[in-house]
Design a binder for these strands. Sequence first.
DNA 1: ATAAACGGTGACCATATGGTCATTAAGAAA
DNA 2: TTTCTTAATGACCATATGGTCACCGTTTAT
Lengths: 204, 204
Amino acid sequence: MPSRVFTELDEKKQQKIIEASIKEFGTYGYENSSTNRIVKECGISKGSLFKYFENKEDLYFYLIDEVAMKMSESMTPELAKLPKDVIERIIAYSTLETTWYIENPDMGRLMIQMAQEKGEIGKKIAEHYKGSSTDTYKALMKDANYSNLKNDKEKVIDIVRWLLQGFNKDFFEKNTKGRKSLKKQKEDYIAQLSEYLDIMRNIL
Amino acid sequence: MPSRVFTELDEKKQQKIIEASIKEFGTYGYENSSTNRIVKECGISKGSLFKYFENKEDLYFYLIDEVAMKMSESMTPELAKLPKDVIERIIAYSTLETTWYIENPDMGRLMIQMAQEKGEIGKKIAEHYKGSSTDTYKALMKDANYSNLKNDKEKVIDIVRWLLQGFNKDFFEKNTKGRKSLKKQKEDYIAQLSEYLDIMRNIL
DNA sequence: ATAAACGGTGACCATATGGTCATTAAGAAA
DNA sequence: TTTCTTAATGACCATATGGTCACCGTTTAT
């Protein structure tokens, strides 16, 4: 365990460390991120960082837990308002998630990077999230209404999932350069996505 | 330039080096691949490797060019047989590509890893492929017939593209463990994919 | 005033990286 | 056999990594 408790530090300091770390991991991914760069960026010593956190991995999981919590805090109140129909529910949930990424770019990048991690850390992330994020999603989908589906349930859901994944990927790639306001970005996202969704809704 | 010409080496030796390098880059990606591990694996000295290739990057691009060429060699004869209808053409081309990956797992992994490279090397790859792979694809799509499309051309194409991407990703994730024969894998791939495609074809 | 406890530090460690180059070994030419 | 040419080698380089720990200034207790 860490020899010093991170959460008892001065809040400004905590924030500086968290911010710098999120940017580092969000930019370079887990393996290529450097603890040296992190301490340089947030102005603390190497020794301190490793008194607050056991090791790089410990810091990483603290961060993603922190981000997941903040995300959950802002999304939970919205969950009740989601439509019941499976497809619409998945779409609305994904939109909620993505607009949160747009509004919180640094944390969003971290989450996107996280989802793409491979190798040892990728397995550990999957393991770590077995009992939290996935459960939220499963709970959400249990309340869904599947009756409107003509075709094979899972397959249509897969197709919509892939549509959302692909659209998001392309959208973020196009959107990295442009320096539009957050509101404009969100509007663009919803407008462009719904054009695709309108086409998809014709199958159902 | 390299001080010794790689292609003039004993062919067995060339093959050993290429094989080891493809496995390394395909497993770890560009940044996390190690030239030390490569030379250890293929049994040559560090000095030799860097006489055959200017640097790590030079080796990497030699490999992907080599793989792209082999792929092109085996796919080109099939291109003429592709259906004319845009959607069916994209599907058939993608299937061709993916079944080649299944038949050539190591090279396939390299290509998949390559497509996911980010950062500096990601940009260089994009730059490198501006004039080759993309051109093949564009040439292919110019001969396509777009008349059967009811909805907005590009959007439907995007949806199909994303379907293929998503299906491939999920398929390869599920398929990494199982040790089925290549023929069985190909059959499975085509069978499972066509179930999704049948659903999609209903929109058109 | 003195001692003890605490917290932060950065030089330092072992290890690994991509890359170099003087040395060696082998073959060809004399 | 002796010289010259060539190719392969691995010790070595500068740099970077994640991680440690003896040290020291500051605060608190005595």
